[in-house]
Design a protein around this nucleic acid. Structure first.
Lengths: 223, 223
DNA sequence: CTCAACTGCGAACAATGATCGCAATAACAG
DNA sequence: CTGTTATTGCGATCATTGTTCGCAGTTGAG
């Protein structure tokens, strides 16, 4: 019942595995990048590899495991060397920036946050980096875990709002509903806020400003 | 192609609708509360109402619309009167607290954050309240929207971690992987952080402390 | 050479979201 | 009162998807 592919030292019996978890995950990632996570069906991935869906189950227990493999695979794209630099603020900002570009490059990652916990090797390596960055801070580990978690949630939220373009149907609907609510007289503050648009700020600036502020709030002087 | 149920003034022709969006949403909410969002299939909801799946489509365009109705329905459980009180910090904390209990009562809401945007009437009413609370703050509307969004993301994340009990399979797996990584020698900071457990703090305290800190960081003195 | 372990995968199954069409019903027009 | 029409309830049915079964083919071990 074990998986094909797994590096169990010596070559086992039977034919050598024709595919690999990495190849399958790559195909799935390509599909998700192009058409969203919903397009990642076992059939579609298998078809892209030129085989049938059943073959994939030699490498993956189920679809969730495939998604997990995808997640960890793209997490490997990040290069966080030099992150425990001593300046924890800069370090955390760098980690956040890295996650941001990762989410922008693979927007489907934003859809996996709530279903699958990112706990693959690369995600754990990331956590190790973050803890390393915070090792110079005098706070108890629980607070550090919290800070990392909050930071990640923040990055997800910010990137999600960055990804929501007006061309998107859901976003258009949202705006329409806002406008409607603002016009019905029962939502004065909303109406005011919508008319009083304050403008252009690059996404990057917005991102860094908010991340830094939250960081400062989180790791405030001990009470 | 219009929906049954919708209050189009005078009674229309044909038989009076036997169900209603509200009743259907209630049944679905009950199902989700008991067995999770995955248990909310058209068939299951219909069966709970004593009918077939096709009937629901007179009241709902598709499953996503049903989930949206569920979301807005439970958002109506919150009573946020007295929230624009003048003390914006207290107001925002109260709103956050309200959302927290809502998420704890209906954990499946945490699974809807990324798929469906919460933009029903009750969600918009919530937004209006929050904007009202922040109306006494001198900041541009964009920043206020951001603050509200960040606050919500924060509440979601904190409540999610509160919901993840050790009895949960996913959480158990996560802890196992952490322990494994901590033991392999390549993750010293993780190992240190895991052994150095700092203890007991009520979830409520944790929640309020973090929310207040982030709020203070967000609405920091203008730069 | 034989056997056992292993892989690839076509065929099939169950569950689910969704559609179609028709019978039943009730307001409306005359 | 009758015929028309808009509307509802819903059984039957379809397409899609995740997943399993079983078997043929392959390869190393004894």
């Amino acid at each position: 019942m074990d998986r094909a592919d797994s590096p169990s030292g010596a070559r086992r019996r039977g034919p050598a595995p024709e595919y690999s978890l990495a190849r399958i995950a790559d195909a799935a990632v390509a599909l998700a990048d192009a058409e969203g996570l919903g397009a990642v069906t076992m059939r579609a991935v298998a078809a892209d590899l030129g085989t049938g869906p059943a073959s994939l189950y030699r490498y993956v227990g189920n679809r969730d495991e495939l998604v997990e493999a995808m997640i960890d695979r793209v997490h490997g794209e990040l290069d966080h060397r030099g992150v425990p630099s001593g300046d924890w603020r800069a370090d955390m900002l760098a980690l956040a920036r890295g996650n941001r570009v990762l989410y922008l490059r693979h927007p489907w990652l934003l859809d996996t946050v709530e279903s699958a916990t990112h706990s693959g090797p690369n995600a754990i390596a990331y956590l190790e980096r973050a803890l390393g960055a915070l090792s110079v801070v005098d706070a108890d580990p629980t607070a550090k875990f919290e800070a990392i978690g909050v930071l990640n949630a923040l990055v997800v939220m910010l990137t999600r709002s960055e990804t929501a373009t007006a061309s998107d149907a859901a976003t258009a609907l949202l705006h329409a509903r806002f406008a409607e609510a603002a016009a019905d007289g029962a939502h004065p503050h909303l109406a005011a806020a919508l008319t009083d648009r304050s403008p252009d700020q690059t996404p990057e600036d917005r991102f860094e400003r908010i991340v830094l502020r939250v960081l400062d709030g989180l790791i405030a002087p001990r009470a």
